[in-house]
């Protein structure tokens, strides 16, 4: 049986940064090739980078949100591309603006089917949220690390709300140990 920690895969990283000055998005949209700007639909300008693949949302206030990247390195790389593009447009950007990772979404697989009803009661109804009529997953809010895990009947899980890539590993560890304590995992780990 494969270790669930090997199945951990980062699906999305969201980071924010800023260039410290207001922007005229209309003119930036004109000059920046491949930028989408439709203020009626979304107040920000969307600029997609292909290598690495991600989308940067540039706002009037000069704040930038980067989403869709698969790793923290990709976030830095694609934001560098955005900064370079902005510099080409004669917009002054600091050499190294601070980039903060806001959220990391990770998926993992426990490799066996889960009985969510039993888990819901075992983990304590006050810590979890499980409404099969509304959503097939069980929502488990962990305190340490402070992330939210969605557990599904197939044994797959999604971990969101983490700030570091290690948060996901820690969360998987906690979940496995909690479930084994309750005798709800048959696996050999």
């Amino acid at each position: 049986m494969t270790d669930p920690k090997d199945t951990i895969n980062i699906e999305n990283v969201v980071a924010s940064t800023g260039i410290g000055q207001e922007l005229d998005l209309q003119s930036v949209a004109m000059d920046l090739e491949g930028a989408d700007y439709d203020p009626e639909q979304f107040p920000g300008l969307v600029y997609r980078t292909q290598e690495p693949k991600s989308a940067a949302l540039i706002f009037r206030s000069g704040k930038i949100v980067c989403t869709g990247a698969k790793s923290t390195d990709d976030v830095h790389e694609s934001l560098e591309i955005v900064f370079d593009k902005l510099r080409e447009l004669q917009i002054p950007v600091d050499d190294d603006p601070e980039i903060t990772v806001q959220n990391i979404v990770t998926s993992a697989d426990l490799g066996e089917n889960l009985n969510l009803n039993a888990i819901a009661i075992g983990l304590g109804l006050e810590n979890i949220e499980y409404e099969p009529e509304q959503f097939p997953g069980l929502v488990y809010r962990l305190d340490e690390p402070s992330v939210v895990a969605l557990l599904f009947g197939s044994g797959k899980l999604v971990i969101t709300g983490g700030k570091q890539p290690t948060d996901a590993e820690a969360a998987v560890d906690v979940i496995i140990s909690r479930l084994s304590e309750l005798g709800l995992l048959n696996g050999s780990f």
């Binding site: 889960l114 969510l116 009803n117 099969p132 009529e133 097939p136 069980l138 599904f152 009947g153 197939s154």
Partner: peptide, 13 residues
């Protein structure tokens, strides 16, 4: 069904 656990994540209705 409950014994085999295929009901997890499925709408009870």
């Amino acid at each position: 069904a409950k014994e085999t656990g295929i009901h997890s994540g499925k709408s009870p209705v």
